Computed example of a mutant assay.
Amino acid sequence: MQELSATYLFDPLCGWCYGASPMIERLRLAGVNARLLPTGLFSGAGAREMDASFAAYAWSNDQRIERLSGQPFSEDYRSKVLNKTGTLFDSGAATLAITAAGLADHRKRFDALRLIQHARYVTGLDITSVAVLADLLSAAGLGEAARLLTEESTALLEANRQLVAEGQNLFRRHGSNGVPALVIERNGHQRLLDASALFSSYDNLMAHLKAA
């Protein structure tokens, strides 16, 4: 697997990305060189305000994801995030926080994503809030990232813009129809992996990678 690398396209508000996280972590532990790229799918024009209809739709999807992946979606998340009046569905701030965490070491993006996903789907925190995100980063020993996020550092904003643009370009180039998406590269050749492989058995996923 030494010659194989993977780029994981995601959005921090994507429940399916949360569901795929354990499998991505297993790939990394197996020695696959993995990189995390945001797509900005649910920020900017893709953002919206939560309402009862969208909350019900999201919860229904989340229950399916939980059955397939084993990842928990708590009642705190349902009551404090989905069913809270005026909650935003906007991944812009969370994406910026993940970029901030990985400025010095891109692998820290995975740590920040895992932290933010747990905060939303298990603890029921509002990860559209910069203050909440900064507290999460600080508590995880990422104080410099928290400072850059709070100050909206010019360097951070530019790095984030570049990462999202790179993620969107890769997303379009491979004709992905959503996230999570995993682009496998071996010997200079790229291929989009069928996302369903992230929700099957680990052995099946490894078989897909070897065939890539």
Rank of each mutant, 00 (worst) to 15 (best):
N187H: 09
G40I: 03
A212T: 00
A131D: 15
L142S: 05
A97H: 01
A94Q: 01
Q162V: 08
L27R: 03
R26Y: 08
L205P: 02
L136E: 02
R28C: 14
D135R: 11
N160E: 15
H189A: 13
G31Q: 05
T39K: 11
A207C: 08
A52F: 10
I127W: 12
F89S: 05
G175R: 01
T95F: 00
K210C: 06
L156P: 04
F110C: 00
L156E: 07
E151T: 14
R67D: 04
H208N: 08
D126K: 02
I24Q: 03
A131Q: 14
L115Q: 03
G40Y: 04
H189P: 12
L36M: 14
S43T: 06
G31H: 02
V132L: 12
F42K: 01
E185H: 05
D90E: 00
W59D: 03
V130H: 10
L82R: 10
G15H: 00
N187T: 06
S201F: 03
H208G: 02
E3N: 15
Y57K: 11
P72F: 03
A165E: 15
F171V: 05
T154G: 13
I116Q: 01
L170D: 09
Y8F: 11
N33I: 06
S79P: 04
Y121L: 00
L9C: 00
I184K: 13
S5E: 10
R120W: 04
Y121D: 04
D76V: 04
F89N: 03
R107Q: 07
E75A: 13
